[in-house]
Amino acid sequence: MRKLMLAVGGSLILVAPMSQADVVGLGASVSYWDSDLSGKAATNNDVVDVENDLNLDNDTNANASLYVEHPVPVLPNVRLNYTLVQQSGQGELGADFGDITTVGTGVNVRSELDLEQVDFTFYYEVLDNWVNLDLGVTARDLNGELLIQEQGGANRVNRTEVDAVIPMGYLAARFDLPLTGLSVGAEGNLISYDGDSLHDFNAFGQFEIALVQLRAGYRQMSIDYEDGDDRLDVEIGGPFVSAGVTF
């Protein structure tokens, strides 16, 4: 079931003067994110701790982005970002969860968590000099599934799923250190509405030489989202490194 949250804070009204690029600019990057997971998942009134009960460990992280900037007034610049987090583990349920019943004793389970999101961000350059500031909105296509499978016995399976297209506010700031190729910055997406909330922030240091752009920093993503009877309330955070090219 897709649930569209239709609130974006008034701070995202882009009334400041916009700075347009002088020429068309392109950029792309890939990154490695060494993330840890914590939080809970729920189906109906059953709750499981994804870290302590399921022992989920980081297996796969895929992150890539692409952006296009242009000199056309009024029209926003566009950024596309893809994130995939896959974790698996073996743990023990101490209480019933969905179709898996414990009958007063613990049940050994194997679990897999897949979180996939595609961000389409439309933004304007408010400042474009040694201080860079972008403001915009992001449409995030979020798909998440937690599969818990009983080991032995009836071999029962339970799935907790969220599937939504969510509008979020977007903000990015970068401060260039003159004549060094070095800069520091931060960027993020955020929304909170009717008990659901999502945020995705990162802070970084960057070194740029010729067309190559290298970054290192810390990223934290929080998802507290309900879709029907299913709910994910998890945090994913850790350091990242990325390499990209700009034209």
Results as ranks from 00 to 15, higher is better:
Asn108Val: 00
Ala95Leu: 04
Tyr124Glu: 13
Val103Ala: 15
Val109Asn: 03
Thr138Gln: 09
Val109Gln: 01
Asn143Pro: 00
Leu66Ile: 13
Leu146Ile: 14
Leu127Ser: 09
Leu147Tyr: 04
Arg110Pro: 00
Asn63Phe: 15
Thr138Trp: 04
Asp96Cys: 02
Ser88Met: 01
Val78Ser: 01
Thr121Val: 10
Thr138Pro: 05
Tyr67Lys: 05
Leu147Pro: 03
Val72Glu: 09
Arg140Cys: 00
Leu66Phe: 15
Thr102Gly: 05
Ser65Gln: 08
Gly94Met: 10
Val48Arg: 10
Asn132Asp: 08
Asp141Thr: 07
Asp53Gly: 03
Glu145Asp: 14
Pro71Cys: 11
Leu127Val: 09
Asn61Pro: 02
Asn77Glu: 05
Leu115Ile: 09
Asp128Asn: 08
Thr138Asp: 08
Gly106Trp: 00
Ser88Ala: 04
Ile148Asp: 05
Val85Phe: 15
Asn63Arg: 13
Asp53Glu: 11
Ala64Phe: 11
Val118Arg: 05
Asn132Leu: 14
Asn132Ala: 09
Val107Arg: 12
Leu75Thr: 08
Leu115Met: 07
Tyr67Gln: 06
Asn55Asp: 10
Gln149Pro: 08
Asn81Ser: 04
Thr121Leu: 09
Phe120Ala: 14
Leu93Gln: 01
Glu92Ser: 13
Asn55Met: 02
Gln117Tyr: 14
Asn132His: 12
Asn108Met: 01
Val126Arg: 10
Leu127Arg: 11
Asp96Tyr: 05
Asp57His: 07
Glu116Arg: 13
Ile148Arg: 07
Thr105Phe: 08
Glu69Ala: 09
Asp141Pro: 00
Asn52Arg: 12
Val68Phe: 15
Ala95Asp: 10
Val103His: 15
Phe122Thr: 12
Asn132Glu: 12
Gln149Glu: 15
Asp99Pro: 02
Gln149Tyr: 04
Leu84Gly: 06
Gly91Lys: 02
Gly91Leu: 03
Val85Gln: 09
Thr83His: 11
Ala139Phe: 06
Ile148Ala: 07
Asp59Gly: 15
Asp134Arg: 07
Thr60Ile: 14
Glu145Ile: 14
Asp114Arg: 14
Arg79Trp: 06
Gly104Trp: 07
Val107Leu: 05
Val109Met: 02
Glu51Asp: 09
Leu135Pro: 02
Val48Pro: 09
Asn55Leu: 06
Thr121Gln: 08
Ala64Met: 11
Ile100Glu: 08
Asn132Pro: 00
Val109Cys: 03
Glu125Gln: 14
Ser111His: 06
Asp53Thr: 05
Val50Met: 09
Asp57Cys: 01
Ala139Leu: 13
Gly98Met: 10
Asn143Cys: 01
Asn61Leu: 08
Glu145Met: 13
Ser88Asn: 05
Val85Asp: 10
Asn143Ala: 12
Asp59Arg: 14
Thr83Phe: 14
Leu142Ala: 01
Asp114Tyr: 07
Leu93Asn: 02
Tyr124Leu: 12
Thr138Arg: 11
Leu113Met: 03
Asn52Leu: 05
Gly91Ala: 03
Val126Cys: 04
Tyr123Gln: 10
Leu127Gln: 13
Gly89Ala: 02
Asp49Glu: 01
Tyr124Phe: 10
Asp57Trp: 00
Gln87Glu: 10
Asp134Val: 00
Asn143Arg: 12
Thr105Ala: 15
His70Asp: 10
Ala64Asp: 02
Gln149Trp: 06
Ala62Cys: 01
Pro76Leu: 06
Ala139Cys: 04
Leu66Ser: 05
Ala64Arg: 07
Asn81His: 04
Leu113Asp: 00
Asp57Leu: 04
Gln90Phe: 06
Ser111Pro: 06
Pro73Cys: 09
Glu51Tyr: 03
